[in-house]
């Protein structure tokens, strides 16, 4: 695993370096731009390569958030998932970045020192329509939420949120936008056909309930990460559940899920972190 991470980061650094030199080239010549496009196309092909499996490396994210502490946390968390993050703190810087580079997803805060994030959303939609937008806002105002989604944001995440939730939603956006949705999530012998909402273990289709499917998907996009019961409960039930027994339900669902995977001959990768929560990892 350690080895894989090293390779990942090496490739990432390499690509970042290439990117920077390409941008330098691009600024010099029109040909440079052409090279960059060709290269980026190749990179995209690499991103969703074999077995039509979703791979989340080199997904470029622009975080537009004025709170540096939060940006750091998000960056730390997302980079461990294979996202490449850049940070800006206001609208002006965000536009400068957007004109200079291309991003897969913009993580947008609505209240910025120099204006409303919704104005940036508008420009994103008209000029960079290929870029996904996830609004994260502390304003829980419902009309802001609706306005954001109406204006074409891919998702809206109210603050505070669990990092695992952010991770899951970012990946969902990326898959929908750049991998045309029809891509599979694969973890060992478990494969989720996201589009068909089907799970196969050793090519046997599992009969999962909606919540169990959602739970498994959440584990798969957050593999090797600790998911607290609370994060899981909030992911599955949103605001409906703020009760103690929701944790029992999480336990119940996980129990059922484990059983169904085992029954199909799969291995149990979900380990219980005592007192903490659950983690899906290669044992």
């Amino acid at each position: 695993m350690l080895f894989k991470v090293t390779i990942d980061s090496m490739v990432k650094n390499l690509i970042d370096n290439i990117n920077i030199s390409l941008i330098f080239l691009q600024s010099l010549t029109r040909y440079g731009f052409f090279i960059k496009r060709r290269f980026l196309d190749k990179l995209d092909k690499f991103k969703f390569s074999s077995k039509r499996e979703a791979i989340f490396i080199f997904v470029k994210v622009l975080i537009v958030e004025d709170n540096a502490a939060l940006t750091t946390i998000i960056t730390t968390y997302l980079e461990r998932s294979g996202f490449v993050c850049e940070q800006v703190t206001d609208l002006k810087q965000a536009l400068e970045k957007l004109y200079g580079f291309s991003y897969d997803i913009v993580l947008l805060d609505l209240t910025l020192p120099d204006g409303d994030g919704l104005t940036l959303l508008e420009q994103l939609k008209s000029k960079w329509s290929a870029t996904g937008v996830l609004i994260m806002s502390a304003k829980n105002a419902l009309d802001d939420r609706l306005k954001g989604l109406d204006m074409g944001a891919d998702d809206y995440l109210p603050k505070p949120f669990h990092m695992a939730e952010l991770n899951s939603r970012m990946k969902a956006i990326y898959r929908r936008r750049h991998q045309k949705g029809a891509v599979n999530l694969i973890f060992k012998e478990i494969m989720i056909k996201v589009e068909a909402k089907e799970v196969e273990v050793n090519n046997i289709v599992l009969d999962l309930t909606k919540k169990e499917f959602e739970l498994l998907r959440y584990f798969m996009v957050n593999k090797n990460r600790l998911l607290t019961k609370q994060a899981i409960a909030e992911h599955l039930w949103g605001d409906y559940m703020d009760m103690v027994d929701s944790f029992d339900f999480v336990y119940q669902h996980i129990k059922n899920l484990r059983k169904k995977i085992k029954d199909a001959g799969g291995q149990d990768y979900i380990s219980t972190v005592y007192g903490g929560g659950y983690k899906m990892m290669e044992s």
Binding site: N67, L70, T111, P160, H162, M163, R225, L226, G276
Partner: peptide, 28 residues
């Protein structure tokens, strides 16, 4: 609104701490 961002920061920090491998049970 202003409460949510600090809460989000604490939340994130806690989550990052939880990811660490050498936590004792009581810390966890």
């Amino acid at each position: 609104h202003e409460f949510q961002t600090p809460i989000a920061i604490i939340q994130g920090k806690l989550e990052n701490m939880l990811e660490e491998n050498n936590l004792s049970q009581s810390q966890m």
